[in-house]
Design a protein around this nucleic acid. Structure first.
Length: 348
DNA sequence: AATCCGGGGAT
DNA sequence: ATCCCAGGATT
């Protein structure tokens, strides 16, 4: 691996920053996404909400959540004053639930420390919960049209292919190379559209699989395309096999419904209602099983028909009413597929 | 620097 | 099945 400066110099010989930004901006204007719900007004609160929701989550998934969120929490003051239960309910199903608490904590920080105005400087933004290096740049670019760089999965993939870079996109120590390139190419004018263009190119043209190189405005300068090696970029570190873990959950059903336990916030599915979880496997035969694959491990769950230990934060809910509580998807799925006849037999 | 956190879209 | 997604916090 060469120095950062080497890669920056080489890249600039391939395409000058002014040429690159002009190409991306012009393409964005005619071919990019310009009607997303959070683009309709340059409202910093809208940008904040959308960026937190979009962390590791696709645009299509976020859109309905974003609309419901704005209807319920139309401004930063409303969000800051909301109850945590309301916040979690509106986030239910979106995943990465820490983001929901971060977003509300961010709103409270903005109201308490910044007079209700989303800050404009990188230093202030970086201190707000849930705002990391990418989101700092995204808020500055999209909310304020400031000349701030962004580096996300799209940008890394685009640069990696364009310059045939050896950096590994899933290795955090290589991020500084991508950031150096992104800084070098960030224009001082029209960066809102430039940043949007980078994301749009990554999402619609320079896709992870089957990129549409024939439609790319950068095809004439793309190194990996010239080498016919587009499918070999971006480089990534080979991942190890995901481990399998066992989980044990109690199914405690009476005429009053199924017993649910609100999980604590230091586990998977923090603060969500769920079947009570056991620390270890009971003796005897399990009532049922299900599997669920997380990004970093596979859960093989066993369901045990037995009374649940009496604890705080429990309630019984009719099996037909569990939808209203926001259970983790695999638990909800299991309960919905539960054979009601078998349950009735057990109850007798 | 590595690990953890979710659910779903696309292939 | 597998990869990936407008990443950040924690360890």
């Amino acid at each position: 691996m060469q120095s950062i400066d080497y890669y920056v110099r080489t890249a600039k010989q391939t395409i000058a920053p002014a040429n690159f930004s002009r190409t991306v901006i012009d393409w964005q204007q005619t071919h990019g996404r310009n009607d997303l719900p959070w683009q309709r007004e340059a409202n910093p609160y809208h940008v904040l909400v959308s960026e937190l929701m979009l962390q590791q989550t696709q645009v299509k998934t976020v859109i309905p959540y974003f609309s419901r969120w704005l209807a319920r929490f139309p401004d930063v003051e409303t969000l800051a004053a909301a109850s945590e239960d309301d916040v979690m309910q509106l986030w239910q199903g979106l995943g990465y639930y820490r983001r929901a608490r971060n977003l509300q904590a961010a709103a409270r920080t903005v109201v308490n420390n910044h007079n209700g105005e989303i800050p404009t400087t990188a230093t202030e933004l970086r201190e707000i919960p849930g705002i990391g290096p990418y989101t700092v740049g995204a808020i500055r670019a999209f909310a304020y049209d400031a000349p701030a760089a962004i580096v996300d999965g799209n940008v890394k993939r685009l640069f990696a292919r364009l310059f045939a870079l050896p950096f590994l996109v899933n290795k955090s120590s290589h991020d500084r190379y991508f950031w150096a390139l992104a800084e070098e190419y960030t224009p001082t004018q029209e960066n809102r559209r430039f940043a949007q263009g980078l994301l749009d190119l990554g999402a619609t043209i320079c896709k992870p699989k089957q990129p549409l190189c024939a439609a790319c405005p950068l095809q004439s300068v793309c190194h990996s395309l010239a080498l016919d090696l587009v499918d070999d970029y971006p480089k990534r570190e080979t991942k190890k096999a995901t481990p399998t873990r066992a989980g044990h959950f109690v199914l405690d059903v009476t005429e009053a419904g199924v017993l649910l336990q609100k999980r604590d916030d230091s586990s998977v599915w923090p603060n969500l209602w769920c079947l009570p979880e056991l620390a270890a496997m009971p003796s005897g035969d399990a009532f049922g099983h299900f599997k669920h694959t997380f990004s970093h491990y596979k859960l093989e769950a066993s369901i045990w028909w037995q009374p649940a230990p009496d604890q705080l934060r429990q309630q019984r809910v009719a099996l037909d009413a569990i939808d209203q509580l926001g259970l983790p998807a695999p638990i909800r799925n299991y309960l919905q597929k539960l054979d009601r006849r078998e349950v009735c037999q057990k109850l007798e």
